[in-house]
Design a protein around this nucleic acid. Structure first.
Lengths: 130, 130
DNA sequence: ATCCAACCCTGTAGTTTCTACAAGGACGGC
DNA sequence: GCCGTCCTTGTAGAAACTACAGGGTTGGAT
């Protein structure tokens, strides 16, 4: 299959597929006589793997490691577990941060008096000094 | 005050202060005879404003607009409200996304059998095809 | 007077993960 | 032969900084 077909099969844009190839995440495929990339099932599976991992928020560096582990099926599962656990902790930290922002923003918006900026609680909270 | 003092007063790094100046968020200050930046109270207040807005997750473009609004105190408060409301919605969307990732990751990690990659549920879930 | 650490200057390049061209070649149908 | 769609490479941009490199300045100790 050509890059466009692979793109729609995996819902990964063609540009992104080329980008992954350049980053070494996806091996360079065979080429047709017209120099078009020609992909097979293994490529589609590998790209789907990458996409699922990205959907779970893993960074490309993590995806790279996970691919190595997936390729060597005799490895102990601990490394996978460690990567995923670390990632989970990062996600939870980010959720906590965003939750604080959300609470503070809701507090500010709730106190908006719909007047002029002069007595806007939001602007007032941001500056000048408290 | 010089840039280092401003930096520690606002907990914004000196490099970032220069960056904000280049972006037009902070007006260029006076210079000493040695060409050092020399800041006053107004600069510190403006930078604190920026920092608080950034802590709430506003993008620099939003901060730029908020600064304009804060400078013209007769403006109606609606524009501020609109920026903050939009931002709140983005934050809530991001929290929802991350929440889904967290749930899925926890599910995967809970099913980890601590064996080899061969029967690792995490790797299995990511690929090849389901 | 000299020395040194700690500060400051400018400008550029790197981070992350793509996305968007620009300029050109290939292919399939009419 | 032409048109629209696909493919190729390479480069630049987006966000918000961060990290140098290669210099000048300051202020205190010796």
């Amino acid at each position: 299959m050509r890059i466009g077909e692979l793109a729609s099969a995996t819902r990964v844009r063609a540009e992104t597929i080329r980008f992954y190839e350049k980053q070494g995440l996806l091996p360079p495929p065979a080429r047709t006589s017209a120099n078009y990339r020609s992909y097979g099932t293994a490529h589609r599976q590998r790209l789907s793997f990458i996409r699922r991992a990205r959907d779970l928020g893993f960074r490309l560096e993590d995806v790279r490691e996970l691919l190595v582990l997936a390729d060597d099926r005799s490895q102990p599962c601990g490394a996978v577990d460690r990567i995923a656990t670390t990632h989970l902790a990062e996600i939870e930290a980010k959720i906590a941060d965003l939750g604080k922002m959300r609470d503070e923003l809701m507090r500010l918006l709730g106190s908006c008096s719909r007047g002029t900026v002069e007595d806007c609680h939001i602007i007032e909270t941001l500056g000048p000094d408290r």
